[in-house]
Amino acid sequence: MLASGVQLDVGSRTRAILRAEHIKIEGLSPLSFQVGGGECLALEAPSGAGKTRLLRALADLDPSTGRVFVDGAERSEMPATAWRAMVRYVSAEPAWWTGTARDALPAKKDQQTRAVRIVSALGLTPADLDKDLATLSTGQRHRLALARSLVDDPRVLLLDEPTTGLDPASAALVEELIRYRLLSGSIVILASHDAALRQRLARARLQIGKRPPPQQSAFRAQP
């Protein structure tokens, strides 16, 4: 146990492992934790405490000190593009740069097929892929963005509020999809305000943003 940080081990027997060492987010003490394949780690923190910043740091989208390993490979050892192909951050505010969802998908045949399958699992139709995104609802765009993030089968999913803004039926489908990903060995780190969702999906929790209680020390600091 590191005095300065939080140490946590989850499912270390499984194959894939994500290990974070001394990740420093401003305003938080350095974080160290480990998540194994098929496991979900839930982040628990008040709003603005740094859940999103932690997920972004893990995906190397913001500069951060500390080290992150997936199966022994450290993020700085590989090109950032290769890292993010493996460690996928799914934003709470999905954004698009194309007219339709299909235009934003990779052209590869197998990924197109996967996209259709995932979209169907999320309660959308394959035709929705070709609709003008501006005409779709926020919830539909949100689910399409999740599908887009999954088509190339990343090993680590960093989910930022994956069910926020969705109706209960859609949220249940998203939850089911996450569960399926876990069964197939993915590593999931989940930031969600939905305590029940965290409870159902995650076996481990990481509480951040709360200062540890002051240490009871036998020695009083000399002035």
């Binding site: 995906a59 989208l61 593009t81 290769a82 890292w83 993010r84 192909a85 996928r88 951050y89 799914v90 934003s91 505010e93 999905p94 954004a95 698009w96 740069w97 963005a145 887009r148 993030s149 190339d152």
Partner: peptide
């Protein structure tokens, strides 16, 4: 202005020149 779209592309593993090509 397009920060979110650019970061979405970067998060998908696209390179900076691809993400910023538009």
């Amino acid at each position: 202005r397009d920060r979110q779209a650019i970061e979405a592309r970067l998060a998908l593993g696209q390179s900076r020149f691809v993400a910023l090509q538009d």
